[in-house]
Design a protein around this nucleic acid. Sequence first.
RNA 1: CGGGGUGUGGCGCAGUCCGGUAGCGUACCUGGUUUGGGACCAGGUGGUCGGAGGUUCAAAUCCUCUCGCCCCGACCA
Length: 566
Amino acid sequence: MRQSEYFIPTLKELASETQIPSHQMLLRAGMVRQIGAGIFSFLPLGYKVVKKIMEILREEIDGIGGQEFLLPALNPIEIWEQTNRVEAMGDVMFHIKNRDGLVLAPTHEEIITVHARQHVKSYRDMPQIWYQIQTKFRNEPRPKSGILRGRQFIMKDSYSLDSSFEALDISYDKHFEAYKRIFDRCGLEYFIVGASSGAMGGRQSQEFMVESDAGEDVCAVCDCGYAANTEVATSDVGTVGRAFEGEAMEEFATPNAKTINDLKEQFELPEDRLAKSVVYMIDSKPVLILMRGNDELNEAKLESVFGTNNLRPADTDELPEITGANAGSIGPVNLKTKIQIVADNRLLDAGGMVSGANKDGFHFKNIDFKRDCKIDAYHDLRSVVPGEKCSKCGEPLRVVKAIELGHIFKLGTKYSEALGATFLNSEGKENPIVMGSYGIGVERVLACFIEHNYDDNGIVWNKALSPYHVHLIGLNIQKFENLKEGCEKIYNELSALGFEVLYDDRNESPGVKFNDADLLGLPLQLVVGKKSFENGNVELKNRATGERDIVPVEELVAKVQEYFAD
RNA sequence: CGGGGUGUGGCGCAGUCCGGUAGCGUACCUGGUUUGGGACCAGGUGGUCGGAGGUUCAAAUCCUCUCGCCCCGACCA
C-alpha cells in the first residue's frame, strides 16, 4: 500500500481528555475516530488490525469445529421475554422506538436457542459449536476508556449445544484451550480467573483477563497460579473463633461509637471481636448481614448467595423500623422485627463478640452466636484484601485491576428450557439441550495489546497483529530518481512474495516519516536513503528493539524473510 | 442517575471572572528555499464562539433553559 494514497490521519496533538494509552495511540495513529460516547469508527488502518484479530478468532474457533453464522442484531422482543431477560437486561438493552416489538441484541443466546429448537432434535445432531463475529449493542450507562467500553462493539460469540453435561464439559474445554491459543497468538499476557456468571445464569464461568490500570475488574492473583475475580475470590483468613467463654452477654453504653473504628479506639477492642451489621433489602425483604470488623461486604457474593441481583442497602430511614436502631448500633440480638440473619464465614460459631444492641448508643458484648442469636446461614461474603494468604499456597495475594477479554460460561439448560429447545436422547426421552456460551471482545483484544505494547513514540506491533508486515520508507524519493526506483523495486519484490508492505512514498521530510513510522509501529522499517543506498545498502530498523542493521540491497529480501520465518 | 469539568476555524488551545474590532499554535492553499528524527521565508483560505431564549446601545463573555463530550461514583455479561 502506497502511503501517499492511503488515509492514515496521524495526529501530533491529542485532546487532553483522552486518558488511557490505547485510546491515545489509536487516535494518534489514525486508526479510530470517535463519533459519540462509546461509538467509534474504525479507519482503514485500524480496521486492518481488527481483521487480523478476527482471522485468528476464525481459525481457532473453526479449529474446534465451530461453524460461522451471521445473526441479526435486530431481535423480536418476544424471545427475550421468554427467557426473562428483558427485565434482567433493563436499560442495557436498546429498544426500537418506531417499530414495536424489536430490540437490538446485546448478545445472542436467544437467537441461537431458537435455531437449535428449530433443527436440533436428536442427540445425534450434537455436539454443535455455532459462532459469529458480529456487532453487539449495549446501552452502557457510562461508556469509557476509548474502545474498551462502548455502546456498540464487535464480539466473537460462540455457543455450544450438547446432549449432556458431560458433553458440555468437552465443548467448554475445547473453548478454554482455543481461547488460550487465541490470546497466545495475539501476544497478550493474560490470566484466567473463576468468575461470577451474573445475569447470564449457569454453573461455571471463567474469565480471561489482562492486567491493566485501565481495567474495570478487580482480581486476586497469586504466583502459584491462583487467580479469581474478587466477585468470587477467597483467601485464607480463618475464623475469629471464641473468647470470654461462658461469660454472660452484657449491654454497655457506646454513645460516641458509630463505626467499627470508633469502637476499636474508644474501647480498645480487637477487630476480631467486633461484628459489623449491615442491613440489605434483598428481593424487597430485609436481611441482616454480619461481617467481621471492617471486612468489606462483597455484593457480588451476596447476589450469588441469594440468587438475585435485586438487592440494595437499606435506606437510613428504614433501619429504625426494621432493627430498632440507626446505623452504628445495629446487631443480631434484640432486633425489633424478625428478619433473616446471615454472617460471613469468618464469624462461624463466634463467641465473645461485640455488636450493636439495636438501641441507639448501646452495644452488647460477649455475644455468643450459638447461644444468643440465631444465624440463619454462614457464607463467604467478604472481599479479599491484598496481602491476605492465598487459600491454595499460603503466599500473599495481590489484588490487581484487569480488563476482561473473554468470558466462557457453562449455561446449562436455562435458555433451552425457557425457549423449549429439546431433543430426544438415545432412549427416546425428551431433554433440554445443554448449552455453553463463549465471548471475546474484539476491540478489547486490540486495546489490551496496545496497553502493553507502546512507548513514547507510538505503538509497537507484533508480527501477528501488525496491520502491515514492513514499513518501507523512501527518503527524498521525489528528488532522487534512483532512490525512488530502488524503493519501487523493493516494494514490488516483497509484495510479490506475499508480504504486506506499507510504502511511505509521500513527499514529506525524513523527520515526518520517521515519526509516523514509529507511531504506526510496524515491526520492521526499511529505510531507503541517499547515504546508504548509494553504497548499495538499505537500513533495517527493528521497531521493538530500536536496532538498526545496514543490509546490502540484494540481501534485503532474505533478511525480511528470515525475520518473518517463524 | 449523583458529583466535578468542558464545548471558540479541520485538530490542539487562549480569551469568559471585569460585556466594546475573535486570537495563538498546527493543518490547509500559492510561490520560493530546504531534505536522516515532526524544516524555513513570504503571501493567503477558513470561525453566526454547542443550541434556544433573555438582559443590554452592544454578548464568546451576564441570566434562564437545553444538548453533547470527558472524569469520579453508582451500574455493568
